[in-house]
Each structure stands twice: as structure tokens, then as C-alpha cells.
Design a protein around this nucleic acid. Sequence first.
DNA 1: CTCACTATATACCGCTCGGTATGAAAATCG
DNA 2: CGATTTTCATACCGAGCGGTATATAGTGAG
Lengths: 203, 203
Amino acid sequence: MKIAAETVTRGRPREFDPEEALSAALQVFWTRGYEGASLAELTEAMGITKPSLYACFGNKEALFHKALDLYERDKLCYMRSAMEEPTARAVAERLLRGTLNIQTGGNDPRACLGVISLVACTTQADSIKTDVLARRASSDKALVERLERAKAEGDLPVGVEPAALATYLFAVMQGMGVQASGGASVEQLEQLVETTMAMWPTN
Amino acid sequence: MKIAAETVTRGRPREFDPEEALSAALQVFWTRGYEGASLAELTEAMGITKPSLYACFGNKEALFHKALDLYERDKLCYMRSAMEEPTARAVAERLLRGTLNIQTGGNDPRACLGVISLVACTTQADSIKTDVLARRASSDKALVERLERAKAEGDLPVGVEPAALATYLFAVMQGMGVQASGGASVEQLEQLVETTMAMWPTN
DNA sequence: CTCACTATATACCGCTCGGTATGAAAATCG
DNA sequence: CGATTTTCATACCGAGCGGTATATAGTGAG
């Protein structure tokens, strides 16, 4: 029950901000993928040495999970807020535009970190793949539930299955990430959003 | 001008079939990606030793390009034949079903080799990424031209841009690959094809 | 058979990887 | 002031990477 004891500083204080360092690590993982990001590149971007990294974050794998937390918290918050849109069509558009925003926010377009991790990690993908899949299953569940509500409200055509529509929407978002990784321009990605919305069923 | 001289066998003959070995290498690259496939795993799957690999195929990078050739020749032939369908809608459906077939053909669903290579290769992606992008640009060009013909024939609604529609279709196919990599079932992928076709504009 | 030539098998190379042992530096507590 | 505790900097570790040198084995030509 000694919670306040953690605030007492004893010994030499660390010279870096863990949140800033984690944010820098996230950028490296996002551009290189989990296996493609080397400890040398990570520590250089974070501005710390390897022992500091291991003392503060555990190891490379634990660092990645924490970076994934940060990514979900900072970059994927639009997913939750999109569910609050009044119509299914508005939900879809917010999802697509949110995806577009995070993919074109940096210097050059890149896919979602989850997509990169999922497709790229092959050798020791065990823990990473499981983590990413669990997070995505959670997002998928939320979208399906939102679309089921939409269907109950008569917001979707009768023939459309909410689960199938959710899978379709995620596929488009992930495909947009692949296009972004392949060097597609911002204009092309915006056009992709508009084309998808033009395809959306009108009830 | 001594072409026939190549048929003369001199020295010890090789004990393996290069095409079979290349096919085995393709499987490894397809599951592991370019950087994730190690020489040890490649040589074991190919049933040859490293010096034989280097003598026959050059190096790992050259082997990958040859494997990509084989992949395009064997697995992506449906792309060319899909263009011969009479209507744009039929072209799209053939493309989607062809993608579904190659992704669910093996033991477990996996994304297109091009997608894997594009998203995964980050460190020395130079030659590999360029190669994959060039091949994809060629496919994209063919599809755009086919859809332009469809538009000229009145086979598409007036508001639909062929280039945008092609980008959209590729995005869905690539998204399907990501879903496959993420452990989606064959039924889910089939449902994705049907949902996409249900979205297709009716003229 | 000998020679020229090519493929095989083994051992090895330099390098980078993720991770760590060690010792010095910097802070608080008594 | 020591004593203690924690962080930082450097050098290092074993393992695996892509790639190769070397020597041996198997073939056709003369």
C-alpha cells in the first residue's frame, strides 16, 4: 500500500523523458517495422543508450508493445470518436478520413503500424502478432456493433450484413495503407476515400 | 554467335532442377518476406547448398527477382485474363476472385507477395521496392486502360473515373491480403469479395 | 588415362543483431 | 563527509546474418 513511496527520488535521476523517448521509438517502429528497427537506430532516435533503454522499457519487444499503446492512444483515437457519428455513412467517412490523416500526416505516406507489424513480422512474430490482432479484433467488434445499431435504426439497406460491411471497410483502410506504403500521393489517397464513399450504398 | 554451344554439357552436371529450386524459394519468400527469409531457410527448402545457390542464381537479391518473375508468371496470370471479360463489372469480379484464389490456395491465407515485400522491406528495400512498384504500375496501367475502354463503351456510370476505380479495386485486393495475413478465414474473404461486388455501381 | 571444367560440401569470413557486464558519475540520506 | 542507490557510458558477448575460399567429386574431350 505504499503508493506515495514511488515519488521519492533516490539515486541518480534519469536524464531523459520516457514519454518523449517512447514517442521517438514509435516513429522508428512505424517506418521500419518491428524487425526492421534495430537497437542502434532506436537508441539513436530516442537519444539514449542501450542500458538506459533496457532499464526503462525492458527489452525491444516490451518497448514495441508500449509504442503500440501510444500509437493506439494518439493516432487511433479517431476510431472511437467515429462511432459517435449519427449515421453509418458518416461513421464510414470519418473512419476513412481519419485513416487518411494519420497515413499522410508524416513526411511520406505510410501504412498503419498494425498493418506493417502484421505483414512484416514473420520470424518471431509470436507476441507482436497476437497483440496486434487482439487490438484489431477490438476495433472490429466496436464497428460491427455500431453497424448493427445502424441496421436496427434502418440506417443500412436490408441486404447488408454489418459484419461483412465492417470487414469491407477495414479492408479498404488497410488497402489504403498499402497504397501509401507504395508511394501513392496524397491526392490519390483522397480520391480513394471519395471513390469508396461514392460506392457506399444509398438506402 | 555460338548459341548451340550452350547445350553442350561440360564439367560435373548439377544435381538439382533450377525451376523446382526457384519454386521452393518462392514459397519461402512468400511466407517470410524478403528480409525475413534467411539463406539457411532458403537453401534447406531448395534442397541445395549456398555455393550452388550463388552459382545458379547470383545472390539473395537476384534470387528474389527471379522468384518474383515466377510469381507473376504463375500466380498473377489471372490479372491479364481478367481484362478480357466483357464488362467492367465482370473484370472486377474476376480480379477479386483471382486474388482470393491465390491467397487461400496454400495452407493458410497470406497476402500477395508484392504487398508483403512492399510493406515489409524497409532497410535495403532499394532494388526490391523498385521492382515491385514497377510491376504493380504495369498492372495498374492495364486495368486503367481496360476501365477507360469500359467507360467509352458506356459500361461505367458517367461520374466514375477509371483511374480512381482502379486504385479502389487494387486497394480492396491489397486489403484482402492484409486480412488474410491477419488470420481471416476463407469464408470471411469470400464474403469480402461479395460485399465489394454488392458495392459495385449499377449503371 | 589425363586434362579441363563445373558442381558439390565444408569451413570460414566480416558484420550486425539483441542483450549485458562493468565501472564511473550523479543524486539523496544519514 | 561517507554510504547508498540509481543512471549513464563503454566495451563486450554469443548467435545469426549474407556471402565466399578451398578442396573434393563427377563429367566430357583428347
